[in-house]
Design a protein around this nucleic acid. Structure first.
Length: 497
RNA sequence: GCGCUCUUAGUAUAGUGGUAGAAUCUCGGGUUUCCAACCCAAGGACGCGGGUUCAAUUCCCGCAGGGCGCACCA
């Protein structure tokens, strides 16, 4: 049977095989921007998280977890309250919603709009008779659109669901600093949900209103940023860098250069920041993304977030959505701790000696590597999706596949073959190898099912198995089979990793 | 959020003013010595609400959700 190699086939696969379902709750028609993961999707996600946690331990990171709800003052200090509430103009006639500041700037290019109050903007609107671009109805009032989800805690405390995990990590700084015993940089990450009330969420799990972030933070001194020991171990690595000056010249082909070269050329300013790019790259390649589907795109100065001094997006090339950001690497400077120090009146505790001279105190700099787990899941599925001849092969890295191995009896109507297969399946489970057992349909069909889930190996018990205690072990990608002793199975499966 | 457009089994679809047809799928049975085979049998759908009508999955309106375009994406 011919399988169409197109995006529709992919989109139905991720539903059919239980990777991604939604928008949830489906039986009630769904709420835009909310999705659920089925068993296969969740297994994949957990495997990604395990890989990250294992590798980050190697890089010396610790993990924390903070509440997803924080009082208003936190977001006032972080700048999110101000920056996440957009001034919008909504048309009384046609209902169009438009960003007030951007539209005003466009209409009045000679006026400085940035920093004006709502009232000042409203005056400008009246004075210049600014009207709806769709239907020409004059605008009147500026309303606010809050990208943060607001809630009440207790009787009357205003709080917000966190729009990023990073800020909640920063609030632990005193504690982390005690914990670190003056070993800098402090390397910490947090995994968890963040919430953004997107105006129109689209593109499956790429822009959800509730999503998972996995954010790494380095708390580091200014001296160490420029003279960073671990940089020397990684500086020879080459990364495809697309800096904003290239983009300005309409070039979209990245320069594949070493981090050392990038520093020398001034494309990157700080060795410690280069190290962050490297960690992002290391984890991405570890997940199995093909090198040629990855690039690093620098934000132009006016694209950067309010806290960022430098920002690069780690992007993956997809068929359906083009380049997709799966990770943002930000130089947040001392912005966050300075703000939280002031608002919480803890500036003294945040002002610490981090360099060689204990008399020189400073507010730590923060370098951040922020992954979106849902985007990793989507891009891994899409880049791994292959239609080969008459089958779908989901080329996930063995370690990430929902099932590690599937065990089949060659035929299902021979009791002793089926029983031996079951025994092998249970034996693998005893070894805590993620085994899946299946008798339904023909042997070929069962292989196909596992190919669609990315299962790296299938073990088949046949007539010979009954005689000589051997089974065949089939490789997902080559479909080649080896005959091996049953006792060697766990060992043989390990080889796939 | 606006405009256009769409929504039928798990998936992808055909079709109709008198409640739906094939494919694939799932389950049971048979057959089968390795890649979606075959045979038998079964299961499963018109997004939600309202209106018009004797009768609405079909026509109209609203809502929700999706796609595309605009806007938004710190």
């Amino acid at each position: 049977m011919k399988i169409e190699d197109n995006i529709e086939t992919f989109n139905s696969l991720i539903k059919r095989r239980g990777f991604i379902w939604g928008p949830s709750p489906e039986i009630y028609g769904g709420l835009a921007g909310f999705f659920s993961y089925g068993p296969a999707g969740m297994a994949l996600k957990n495997n990604i998280l395990s890989l990250f946690r294992r590798e980050l331990r190697y890089f010396g990171f610790g993990e924390v977890e903070c509440p997803t709800i924080m009082p208003e003052v936190v977001w006032r200090a972080s700048g999110h309250l101000e920056r996440f509430i957009d001034p919008v103009l909504s048309c009384k006639e046609c209902g169009s919603l438009i960003r007030a500041d951007k539209y005003l700037q466009e209409q009045l290019p000679d006026t400085m709009i940035d920093g004006l109050s709502f009232e000042q903007m409203e005056n400008l609107i009246k004075k210049n008779k600014i009207a709806c671009p769709k239907c020409g109805t004059p605008f009147e009032k500026i309303e606010e659109y809050n990208l943060m989800l607001k809630t009440k805690v207790g009787k009357n405390t205003t709080a917000y669901l966190r729009p990023e995990t990073a800020t909640t990590t920063y609030l632990l700084f005193n504690r982390l600093n005690q914990d670190a015993r003056r070993q800098y940089p402090i390397k910490i990450y947090q995994y968890g949900k963040a919430y953004r009330n997107e105006i129109s969420p689209r593109q499956l799990v790429l822009r959800m209103r509730a999503f998972d972030q996995f954010e790494l933070q380095l708390f580091i001194g200014k001296e160490q940023e420029m003279d960073f020991e671990e940089y020397h171990e990684i500086k020879k690595n080459k990364l495809p860098l697309l800096d904003w000056k290239l983009q300005d010249k309409n070039i979209d082909k990245p320069n594949i250069i070493s981090l050392e070269e990038a520093i020398k050329k001034g494309i990157l300013k700080k060795p410690a920041y280069a190290y962050c790019l490297y960690i992002g790259h290391y984890l991405t390649i570890k997940l199995g993304f093909p090198e040629n589907a990855v690039r690093y795109r620098q934000h132009s100065p006016n694209e950067r977030a309010h806290y960022a001094d430098d920002a690069w997006d780690l992007e993956i090339l997809t068929k359906q959505f083009g380049w997709v950001e799966i990770c943002g690497i930000h130089d947040r400077t001392d912005y966050d701790l300075r703000q939280h120090g002031e608002f919480s009146k803890q500036t003294k505790q945040f002002n610490i000696a981090m360099g060689s001279d204990p008399k020189i105190k400073e507010i730590p700099q923060i370098l951040e590597i922020a992954f979106g787990i849902d985007r990793i899941i989507y891009t891994l599925l899409e880049t791994g999706f292959n239609v080969e001849e008459e089958r779908i092969n989901l080329k996930l890295k063995s370690e990430l596949a929902p099932n590690t191995v599937a065990v089949f009896p060659l035929v299902r109507n021979k009791k002793n073959i089926k029983n031996l297969a079951l025994k092998i399946h249970n034996g693998l489970l005893e070894h805590r190898i993620g085994s899946f057992f299946d008798v339904a349909g023909s042997i070929g069909k069962r292989y196909r099912r596992q190919d669609e889930l990315g299962t790296p190996v299938c073990v088949t018990v046949d007539y010979d198995s009954l005689e000589d205690n051997t089974v065949t072990i089939r490789d997902r990608d080559t479909m080649k089979q080896l005959r091996i002793k049953i006792s060697k199975l766990p060992e043989e499966i390990q080889k796939k990793f």
